[in-house]
Write a protein that binds this DNA or RNA. Structure first.
Lengths: 352, 352
DNA sequence: CTGAAAGCGCTTACAG
DNA sequence: CTGAAAGCGCTTACAG
């Protein structure tokens, strides 16, 4: 019976009872082998191992966890907009969790489904919930409170300003201060803001950073900056950047520095400006945000802000893992990640 | 007791027993309300509903499924390389599954971890497994066979040629035939192949398509095409495209049409060619693959092949859902998706 | 070193 | 319309 037909797992065996009968041992013994407990005869272990290969038996996770085993599961909510930075954060986090033998449950939060997702996570008895990206602030605040009441740890990545939330985020305000200082040092005093017309907290924080940097030099945001942002939904960020750049050119008032909400808009704008005969960076400087691969493509390459995603996720892990299975910490914790300015050819001294 | 303090869920309640005691009903009754079974007094239903709000009680999914409820879970394996098309397929599929009240378990397959992932899926008693992208062919074949032996349905998206696998994929061979016909009709007879130096089945299929299209006009692949592909690992596809384009220019033998493995390489190449003083499409035509947003960015915009991802996922759903909970179908099924050529300014008639 | 018994949190016949 | 009992597939004391 236990000879050699290892190729076709007998799919009949569905429970440890059947499996134990197949091996000819008590369920208890089998369970102990499966869990690597000490004090088993090598021969017994060998028998069970071989039977697993023969039958392809996989224990039922639902019974395991019902019986008190940790679920070792973390629920991850990600925002609707699957931009490269969000995907990279998700992938990095999942990898780190898996290295610690945690499974992740991943759900995209869309308008109106966040309660359902959280309930699902709770029913799966996740040991923590992580939010990556930007969400409806009220929903998020409510979920954070509910998780707290259930003593389930949570972590909010990227969305700052949520009451009571443990947060890890790029310091977006500082990011823009750093970028502005870079441009101000080059002598720029007039700035085009491209596609910053969003009420999202992440964008507002960045506008604050811009304002702070200007204020530090005695300048006023409203006087130094201008915008021609579209009001329609953006279909393609590249196109949008080009469109806005053109609007500046046509208006006849072209600032010396263009600051875009992201790299795609920046590159679109750069193309728009170059098509209008302006030279980058001799006539205008252009800067993006996120430091995507695409930054290396235009000529000159695009100056951008790197989110340091690996570092963000590293910190996320350091903050999250110690909380799992522990009594909930009383005070919430906010960690900000230092932005990294990657200066390339698209920004330079203002023409005198 | 059941007055009004709805804000603070009493996190103590962790089981239906405790919950039933709280409401003052039998567990059976509570269970029936939770499952929406008929024949309950409205007042009873009301009582339970209110208690749920008061306590925030969420039933334990592990007990539910152990007791025989369907897990309504699908395992999704995605390839390591999280390119935009892969992410879009994943997101679309998960959305469709959720609309049918299926939960998805998502795991990235990395070299050597696929067995572990499949075991995890099996232990979670998934009702099907979906593979998105390209994987080690032997692993994939083995997993497909194992799932079959366990009567668990599966679906392979994108990876054609797996024995016994239910497959939905873009017809990559045809995609290249269509693109080649487009270029051949324009009079092109010399072709640069950019970054097709991969042994992946998806790339080989595309090379076959190129060969077929040439053969149909009495031309021979080896005589019409040339390559300067790098042997190093690619860090940045844009840079790689530019580098390869430069190699062609420096070699002094510049084909009239450049066909790239993807949009990023194509755009990099286009920039490289333009920087060398060649005009697109007057001097050279350039074509990409995937029809990403970035295609609209260069001047002229990039001709590309659209994978019709929504259609792919739609078919995936139509093929997969009917299999769930059904006896396993004997013959495997292969569906190919028609590619869509999106001709833009980067391709044009060959200079006479 | 191995086995029989209890119990995790649910649902589902089966009685009342 | 509601309740007591059995059982899903495991693990963990507790005996032998």
């Amino acid at each position: 019976m236990s000879t050699s037909q290892p190729k076709t797992p007998t799919s009949q065996i569905r429970s440890s009872t059947e499996f134990a009968r197949y091996v000819g041992l008590a369920r208890t013994t089998v369970s102990r082998v499966l869990n690597g407990q000490p004090g088993l005869k090598p021969k017994t272990i060998e028998r069970v191992k071989r039977a697993i290969e023969e039958t392809g038996f996989v224990p039922n996770a639902y019974a395991l966890h019902l019986k008190g085993k940790r679920t070792a599961t973390v629920g991850i909510c990600i925002e609707n907009l699957l931009t490269p930075p969000v995907v990279r954060k998700l992938a990095s986090l999942q990898r780190l969790l898996r290295e610690d033998n945690f499974t992740s449950l991943i759900e995209v939060i869309e308008p109106g489904n966040s309660d359902k997702v959280i309930r699902h996570f709770l029913s799966m008895r996740v040991e923590a919930v992580v939010f990556i990206g930007h969400f409806n602030e009220d929903d998020l605040t409510r979920h954070v409170a509910e998780l707290g009441a259930r003593e389930t740890p949570h972590l909010v990545i990227d969305h700052v300003g949520i009451k009571g939330a443990n947060t890890v985020s790029l310091d977006r305000t500082k990011a823009m201060r750093v970028l502005m200082d870079h441009l101000l040092d080059y002598g720029h005093r007039t700035f085009a803001l491209l596609a910053f017309n969003s009420p999202a907290r992440s964008v507002l924080d960045r506008l604050h950073g811009i304002g702070d940097a200007l204020a530090a030099r005695g300048l006023v945001l409203e006087q130094c900056t201008s915008a021609h942002d579209g009001v329609y939904p953006r279909v393609n960020d590249f196109e949008e950047g080009r469109r806005i750049a053109r609007a500046f050119v046509e208006s006849g008032k072209v600032p010396t520095a263009f600051i875009a909400v992201n790299d795609e808009v920046a590159i679109g704008a750069m193309h728009g400006l170059q098509e209008a005969g302006l030279r980058v960076p001799q006539d205008v400087s252009v800067a993006g945000f996120n430091n995507l691969d695409v930054c290396l493509m235009p000529t000159p390459a695009l100056t951008s802000i790197d989110q340091r995603i690996e570092e963000t996720i590293q910190v996320a892990q350091e903050v999250l893992l110690p909380q799992l299975g522990q009594p909930l910490r009383a005070r919430s914790l906010v960690r900000l990640i230092e932005p990294l300015l990657v200066a390339r050819g698209s920004t330079g001294p203002v023409r005198s």
